[in-house]
Design a protein around this nucleic acid. Sequence first.
DNA 1: CGGGTTCAGTGATAAAGTCACACAGGCAAA
DNA 2: TTTGCCTGTGTGACTTTATCACTGAACCCG
Lengths: 213, 213
Amino acid sequence: MARHSILDTLNDSLRKDTLEGLQAMRFPPGQVLFSAGEHCRGLPLVLAGSIKVQMTGVSGHSIVLYRMGADDICTLSIGCLMTGRGYRAEAIVEDEAEAAIIPRGLFDRLMDQSAEFRLGIMESYGRRLDDLMLLVEEVAFHRMDERLEEWLQARAAGGQNVLNITHQELAVELGTAREVVSRLLKELERRGQVRLARGRVELTGLLKTASLA
Amino acid sequence: MARHSILDTLNDSLRKDTLEGLQAMRFPPGQVLFSAGEHCRGLPLVLAGSIKVQMTGVSGHSIVLYRMGADDICTLSIGCLMTGRGYRAEAIVEDEAEAAIIPRGLFDRLMDQSAEFRLGIMESYGRRLDDLMLLVEEVAFHRMDERLEEWLQARAAGGQNVLNITHQELAVELGTAREVVSRLLKELERRGQVRLARGRVELTGLLKTASLA
DNA sequence: CGGGTTCAGTGATAAAGTCACACAGGCAAA
DNA sequence: TTTGCCTGTGTGACTTTATCACTGAACCCG
């Protein structure tokens, strides 16, 4: 956990002020950091854990846009803070997270006085932009069965072979309907690639034999 | 054309340096500012005109991600400049554009010395993020016929009732296949809402009678 | 005017989204 | 323990969108 933090780059005086000015907090999984329409109350800087950001369309359907991890600044919040408009998406803690809320004034000072901090912000923005561009491409052009398999595969790569997740939650991850996920999973089960139970997907056979990278 | 530029916010000395350091250029419609894979050679600051940014998926299909207009900094270029990676998308001039290329050094100086410039950058980033989030929602959850009608409507709102555009280009705007656009347009023509000709869509009847805002 | 190139139209079929409803598992109150 | 109830899952029927494989029309240019 001795991760290199963006705050380590600050010089001593600035660092001292910063550490005084912000309040690190822990958030349990499931906690909602902010939801759509709400107004911004400071800039979350994620120190550890994982937070997913998802939005709900006028249709009532939701989709996960991206995830924030250690050293990410919530770029969405910057926008809301600047423009004064409400959030367009919501943020939900996934893995127990630690985050510091940076007040507006401190943010402005850091931007003014630390080139490294600025760089960190730009990097966060860059990642978000990249994530979203990739997502657009995925949603617009990729087949659902492949996306589902890839998603499961990616999760499994983290060592987990048994995922505790409902079809509905998977549907939100992929931005599709629950029925579609159900059918695709059923098909995978028929092929012996997964085993299904209520709220559980166990990966058995290797999916995506075509990973010939 | 006496638009308020982000450069106007700089103090005299900085402004002088800036105007010396950058080279404003004109670009004709169709000109490619950068394409996928290419490396960044400076930060375009759009002064006038309109530039569309689109990406091509592995599938070979393309989709327009967003447009840059006056006072927009190309946020994509910032990312490429910072990370040294190539562009993931391409930028094509739509309406004759004027843009200044800001060299890396000058950008760093401006970021360091002008809070207003920083604010401008953040705003550009915020807009892009917003555009992309909206696009994801559109692509994931909206029906193609509605999206097409809305797109045409939005264009027509600019005073133009005759659009010189091919079905293929429309398909890229919406991130779908040419055939789909052809069929939907044909249906609109049957209903008397548009008149079609090679490379041309004329809006006749009012589309989207359901604009009961 | 012929011949090539770019655009547009269309049928057949597969994939994905929508709607409606049946049923199963787990939990808690009766 | 049984009875509901709520949440999660399975599925049929149908619509919309994507894909593939063509055909033919409009335009450009030698």
